[in-house]
Design a protein around this nucleic acid. Sequence first.
RNA 1: GCCGUCAUCGUCUAGAGGCCUAGGACGACACCCUUUCAAGGUGUAGACCGCGGGUUCGAAUCCCGCUGGCGGCACCA
Length: 457
Amino acid sequence: MVRTRIAPSPTGEDLHIGNLYTALLNWTWARKNNGAFIIRIEDTDRTRLVPGSEEQILKTLAAFGLSPDEPFCRQSERLSIYHEYVEQLVDKGHAYYCFCTPERLDTVRKEQIAQKKQPKYDRHCLSLSPNEVNEKIERGEPHVIRMKIPEGKTTFHDVIHGDITIDNATIDDTILLKSDQFPTYHLAVVIDDHLMNITHVIRAEEWIPSTPKHVLLYHMFGWQLPVFVHTPILRNPDKSKLSKRKNPVWSSWYLAQGYLPDAILNYFGLMGWSHPEGKEIFNRDEFIRLFDIKDIQSVGPVFDIAKLTWMNGEYIRMMDLSQLTKKIHNFFGDRYSIELTKQIVPLVQERIKTLQEFDTYSSFFLAAPAAYEQDLSAQRDLLISIAGRLDSLTDWTAQNIGYVLEELAREKSVSNSKLFMALRIAITGKKITPPINESMVTLGKTESIARIKKAAE
RNA sequence: GCCGUCAUCGUCUAGAGGCCUAGGACGACACCCUUUCAAGGUGUAGACCGCGGGUUCGAAUCCCGCUGGCGGCACCA
């Protein structure tokens, strides 16, 4: 049975968008194989813990419909398990206690760098006798447990990258258990993935360099290796790893902007993977059916928000009116009444790319413009004529409005373009708006004419 | 610096030796439509497949080297 997982750290304000991408891949692979997708909170870094982060991450995942098949777990509640296993490693001679202070470590590292050598622990504490170790522990000296990297080379297979070999000499005697008795990622991830029967470790490729450590640990424990799948990492436009300095990275930011979960996930489906028929728009079921981890490309794609925005617009366009109306009304709370929303949605559905954009198109329905995007001083006479003509209109429909205004333009020898632009600015204050005649119907005759007269002042 | 990894239009990608004078999508641009801006429709430009060698009758596709990008080198994950 296929079992996948994602292992977010509650050290940020929300789920990182890159983690959402990995979550999608893991979730999809589990779904495709009728397996299980689980969430494990990796909260072993007590200093970077952010309150509320875990809750937000879980909430975001749920909002995207990537819910786990089992209750989530926290590494901080599994400390005794890590202690038990790391002791096994010490007993077998695969790990050792280290009492070096951070200051000494720092000094050693700086010397190594100055000598242009690779910064690596110098195994200062490896020579300690068992008695010395016991004495130091009894005395309460702070200590960590380090992995004793054996000589040789380590090779592992990755579904996307093929065989990867690393010389063990380049691997540091990594800390497995920190002085606060919490495990480091390397120890915890191996133990948990094994104990939780994870079959496929699908994670970002930034983990490739530390995978040999994990492989070594599996060997030391005598455990079977999972399948490793190192996925490309999403990039900023400058190709660096996606970061919050250069891009919005918190998943719920996209939700708050009015991007739809399905559109975002569909967009991610195009990152490093492509539909066999070249289709751009496809739903989750189709993705599950066609997706295969072996087809993922190894290049790190740039996260292109312009294409995401286009795709989101396509999703909005595909929604039926009542569904979209409900969604927009919920999105804005009481800012737009359900009745008003219902009237506006048909006017803007084709043009909005995000739910948030609804507001930029529609805010003039709520209040008369406070400012005009274009100067109307040269159009006063024209506006007054428009107001007069509309005032005499008895049947207030979009068609009639269009008819009389077109007639007015002809009489005045003014281009439609000019007349309607002046009207548009007068009514909405903006240059880009929903169809103006229909908008005026929604706004009502009295209000519309009042706005035109005001603009002519 | 050391280790690893990757390399097709600005971006996402198709391409697994001849179907490629390299296809699609986003974006850009142009035109059309039009009771208007936008939206929509149509079309155009855009990669000599990072560079240099090889293998082959034939290479974007295979091999080698180089260069460049990216990632990693914490008591962070």
